[in-house]
Write a protein that binds this DNA or RNA. Sequence first.
DNA 1: AGGAACGTAGCACGGCCGTGCTATAAAACG
DNA 2: CGTTTTATAGCACGGCCGTGCTACGTTCCT
Lengths: 200, 200
Amino acid sequence: MPRVVDPAQRRQDLAAAVLRVIRRDGLEHASVRNVAQEAGLSMGSLRHYFTSQSELMAFAFETVIERIQARLGDLTGERDPRRRAETILVELLPLDADRRAENEVWLAFTARAAVDPTLRALRDEGYDALRDGCRAIVAELSEAGLAPTDVPAETERLHALLDGLAVHAAMRPDLHTAESLAAAISRHLDALAVERSRGD
Amino acid sequence: MPRVVDPAQRRQDLAAAVLRVIRRDGLEHASVRNVAQEAGLSMGSLRHYFTSQSELMAFAFETVIERIQARLGDLTGERDPRRRAETILVELLPLDADRRAENEVWLAFTARAAVDPTLRALRDEGYDALRDGCRAIVAELSEAGLAPTDVPAETERLHALLDGLAVHAAMRPDLHTAESLAAAISRHLDALAVERSRGD
DNA sequence: AGGAACGTAGCACGGCCGTGCTATAAAACG
DNA sequence: CGTTTTATAGCACGGCCGTGCTACGTTCCT
């Protein structure tokens, strides 16, 4: 058979197939057979790229986490702390179809990570990255006088709010529009500024 | 064989067995066989109480949701709005082993509900109940001058914070102690009061 | 006392699963 | 051109799964 694409691309395609199956049928149906079929390959061929199912799943989860981390890194440009914070945070919310899809599979993997050590390590990595991002945002706001001085406490609150909104968006996409999600973040940032100017 | 317990109790026991299996091995291992073994029954006997696996799973999920709803209902006693709010909210957090266990299986079921219509209906019921509870709390605080006047927006924020904290507690039980979770809620309630007295 | 309903157990069928193995053809390389 | 590597396909084994069915003892009701 001809080499039609390079191996790395094939692995990406297979990861994408995994995500499609998970979204459509759930993580429990993301079997080697189903994923191979989704990608238009035979089982044997898939196993040429991933020697085990867990390797395939881990790779698929990694791609999701990497995409989330990449969004966090995109904080160039904007220099005003408030707008900068809002820009980054909104970027992380599931506002369009792509991010909604990622968010759904993130939730599925996160749940399974409770009993799968490999996935757990990846999930923790993503958790830490997001928390660090939240901390950086809060610290910057705090330094600019736009958030309370207790950075750890406000990091906890912002991080929980962000993931809570993501979970809610996955559970009830009808009730959580792009606008309402973004508005919730915006309101929280406003609130932080008010708290600082008043309480601390 | 003798009737040793009444059927309703047996169903409760089986639901409890489901939850234990889910916590230990994950939802994907909560098969009829494994649950029957966990409960010390034969498959055939289990099927006397639940004619299908989905019925068993739905029942188990219901028991979790009912427990959460029951906590929301326990709002008698305390009359001071602030303390009342804190009491109820803290009750909902996974602060002890029992609530942590519930929280973990809630997460597992919630993820599966994305592709299982029966579970989705139950999950939505729980979501609505929790949101209504949050709304009632925010409304009461707002009326007492202890929270901003925009009740829907603050309900969204409080609800997301609550579920976000629960998810984080499930993901990283080591990083989220009972104290830190309760402190996050307490801080948020303080913040609401500050916002009201300042911003609105 | 005797039949009906209940609770428990166990088996067997068909299905999906992950993975090890072999075969084959294209490509890469010497 | 021949050989080795790579990519693809397919099969078969053993395992777990849900569920339908039968059997058997116990309890209950009349």
